[in-house]
């Protein structure tokens, strides 16, 4: 069964079509990577999935329910979690405070456990704003993971992370596989190839190809449009 399905999802801004009739299906338990050059509409697409952006037309189905008209917070309550491309945490609150809000539960034990999972438990009382960039990124991801979501949406999670931190991130995401379905926007092809079960390639707002990593790698169109480029 698919957790997430979009049907003809489209977003037009004054004269510009950012996302053009995308049909995307994400199966239960898979790690689904969304790749494509800058400006291909990846962030707009997941924005519409999570309810941050209102689609011009098309539908979003989540766990068999049409959620197109639901506001973002209601989708999150139904089991989506969303992490931002640009780190978005509560700088003025402690790490515990951040996690308590993410958990929607003020039990510090649960928040601590969630921090432990990303190796930040020893910094629980610190202000999130005082963390180093890589740790802030981890906190952002921890806030998504902590919600124990059905679908975890990660928008460029490894951006700005060091190699060692990327390895930790890969291990964390791999440990979730099976229970949590993950929709991942990612530029780092090593991460994509290591984690993804399936890959969808977007170009100028439309799906160029979709399939297993090996198929995508072998697809000449994809190579032409994307993999051959410098930013891959």
């Amino acid at each position: 069964m698919s957790v997430l399905q979009t049907k003809g999802l489209t977003k037009r801004y004054a004269g510009l079509t950012a996302v053009d009739g995308v049909d995307l299906t994400v199966e239960t338990g898979e790690i689904h990577a969304l790749i494509g050059p800058n400006g291909a509409g990846k962030s707009t697409l997941v924005g519409m999935v999570a309810g941050r952006t209102e689609p011009t037309s098309g539908e979003v189905w989540f766990k068999g329910e049409n959620v197109t008209r639901l506001p973002a917070h209601a989708r999150i309550r139904r089991g989506m979690a969303y992490t931002f491309q640009i780190t978005s945490i509560y700088n003025q609150l402690s790490l515990l405070g951040n996690l308590e809000l993410a958990l929607r539960d003020s039990d510090p034990a649960k928040a601590r456990a969630a921090l432990d999972r990303v190796g930040l438990a020893d910094r629980a009382e610190q202000l999130a704003g005082d963390l180093a960039y890589g740790h802030q990124r981890l906190l952002e991801i921890a806030m998504g993971v902590a919600q124990d979501p059905t679908l975890l949406i990660l928008d460029e999670p490894t951006q700005g992370l060091a190699e060692s931190e990327i390895a930790e991130f890969n291990a964390l995401i791999a440990s979730l596989a099976g229970d949590t379905t993950i929709l991942l926007i990612e530029h780092n092809m090593n991460v994509v190839m290591e984690l993804a079960h399936r890959i969808t390639v977007l170009e100028t707002g439309a799906v160029l190809a979709s399939g297993a990593p090996a198929e995508i790698k072998a697809n000449p169109e994809v190579q032409e449009a994307y993999l051959g480029h410098a930013d891959a």
């Binding site: 999570a50 941050r52 973002a72 917070h73 999150i76 309550r77 969303y82 931002f84 978005s88 945490i89 509560y90 700088n91 003025q92 609150l93 405070g97 308590e100 809000l101 993410a102 929607r104 003020s106 806030m143 919600q147």
Partner: peptide, 18 residues
């Protein structure tokens, strides 16, 4: 606590399901 969360970062708070 949720009000403070809104003050600190409204979009984040919304995307945490509030």
């Amino acid at each position: 606590h949720t009000l403070i969360a809104i003050r600190e970062n409204e979009e984040r708070t919304r995307m945490l399901g509030y």
